[in-house]
Design a protein around this nucleic acid. Structure first.
Length: 395
DNA sequence: CAGTACTCTGCGAAATGATT
DNA sequence: AATCATTTCGCAGAGTACTG
């Protein structure tokens, strides 16, 4: 405790400035507790690195909430995982319930506020991880959590710090939501043109083997220097969220797929939705993909049509129905060839591209901007929280 | 006894290894 | 090269022990 802290800052225990709300699970054996209107958060619902969390996969009923130990966490309060992968954190975009592997956090008024606490906790995640233990999976107990000592700036400086970081996160959130809207628009148009208004004379062709798309085989060319290896775990939905640097000589055995211009990729594993697309705006030379992905080579005419198809729920369902293998349920190349898709006329595809190309270009630009803003935020966060960089406070 | 903290069990995701 | 099998480890949920 000899480390110096900035003047005016205080060392306090986390428990002094926050209140911890515990979660719980309604009995799974009681059907009337489930499928209600109240989103019920699990770690997987917010383990995406984003600040705000708006929904949960599972939902419980009023009754389920009342008759279990589950509490409601309010919009603007914070959730942090305390078991398993400790330290996954998010701020609630609406009221939700949550399970017992997480703690709900609410700032004590007058001392601090949730927006600042969110960043403070994020900064202290290594602390939480090192204070976790357990035979089967790591756990940080409520007590340990409360005892962790943090460095707390005076309230005006807290406000200034939170304001800087929030402005970045709010912009990131806006871009994410804009992309969701763009993808939704693309899907709507795809459905209208190629499902509802499909022409009778459009033939059914194989997704894996037609003039629209063909399966990409594994194998990469020798390359100099470093590239980024993307395993399926490095992709969430349609976003790249991870990746490691590799060289040709020193790379995992599965780093054996080469993205090419006009290609569409999806995780082979059943039930998993991880999708990537490379068009003429993409930096194909930067990445090597895992053989956990299947790739389709598309072309200038078919690219956005195939991509929009891959994005649909229906493709996910069809893919899952073709999955084989008892232990590792993957779709095989044979399966991909058996999936059929309509072959629209060229003019319809050309018209579709005219709309989709700028739309997905915007989407991609947004993703780039998101990564830039995230980098900036991640660089600033530790500097601001340690007091290494100070922000001017409004008086 | 009730609420909470910790432990146990089983399943699934993903990496690695083996076989065709 | 492609597919199938095994291993490792993360995670959810249930079970149980502890505490006041």
């Amino acid at each position: 405790m000899s480390e110096k802290i900035p003047e005016g800052w205080k060392r306090v225990k986390l428990g002094e400035v926050i209140e911890i709300i515990t979660g719980g699970t309604p009995k799974t054996s009681v059907p009337e507790y489930w499928n209600g209107d109240i989103p019920w958060l699990s770690i997987t619902d917010f383990n995406n690195g984003r600040k705000y969390c708006y929904n949960a996969e599972k939902k419980i009923t009023e009754k389920g909430l009342k008759e279990s130990t589950t509490n409601i966490l309010k919009k603007g309060q914070i959730i942090i995982s305390a078991r398993g992968t400790v330290g996954v954190i998010s701020m609630l975009g609406r009221d939700m319930a949550f399970n017992q592997s997480c703690y709900g956090i609410n700032a004590k008024a007058g001392l601090t506020f949730n927006d600042f606490i969110y960043y403070l906790l994020k900064f202290n995640i290594p602390h939480f991880i090192s204070n976790s233990y357990g035979a089967v999976f790591d756990t940080i107990t409520k007590q340990t959590f409360e005892q962790i000592i943090i460095k707390l700036p005076p309230l005006p400086e807290q406000k200034a710090i939170a304001s800087v970081l929030s402005s970045l996160d709010d912009k990131i959130d806006l871009l994410h939501r804009q992309n969701q809207t763009l993808e939704k628009m693309a899907e709507t148009l795809f459905r209208k043109w190629f499902i509802e208004d499909a022409k009778d004379d459009w033939e059914e062709v194989s997704l894996g083997n037609s003039e629209l798309s063909t399966i990409i085989n594994s194998g990469i060319d020798k390359f100099e220097g470093e590239k980024i290896y993307l395993a399926t775990g490095d992709v969430q939905d349609t976003n790249i969220t991870g990746g490691i640097k590799i060289t040709y000589e020193n790379r995992p055995s599965r780093a054996n797929m080469q993205p090419v211009k006009f290609s569409v990729w999806f995780a082979k594993k059943g039930g998993v939705r991880k999708l990537l697309m490379f068009d003429d705006y993409s930096d194909i030379n930067k990445y090597i993909l895992s053989t956990g992905f299947s790739g389709l080579k598309t072309n200038e005419l078919s690219h956005y049509y195939i991509w929009c198809f891959i994005l649909t729920k229906e493709f996910q369902e069809i893919k899952d129905s073709f999955v084989s293998g008892s232990v590792q349920p993957d779709i095989t190349n044979e399966g991909i060839k058996q999936i059929t898709i309509l072959r629209p006329d060229d003019q319809t595809l050309i018209n579709f591209n005219k709309i989709m190309k700028p739309l997905f270009y915007k989407c991609q630009q947004n993703k780039l901007q998101i990564r830039t803003l995230e980098n900036l935020r991640d660089t600033l966060l530790p500097k601001l929280m340690s007091g290494e960089v100070r922000v001017k406070c409004e008086v």
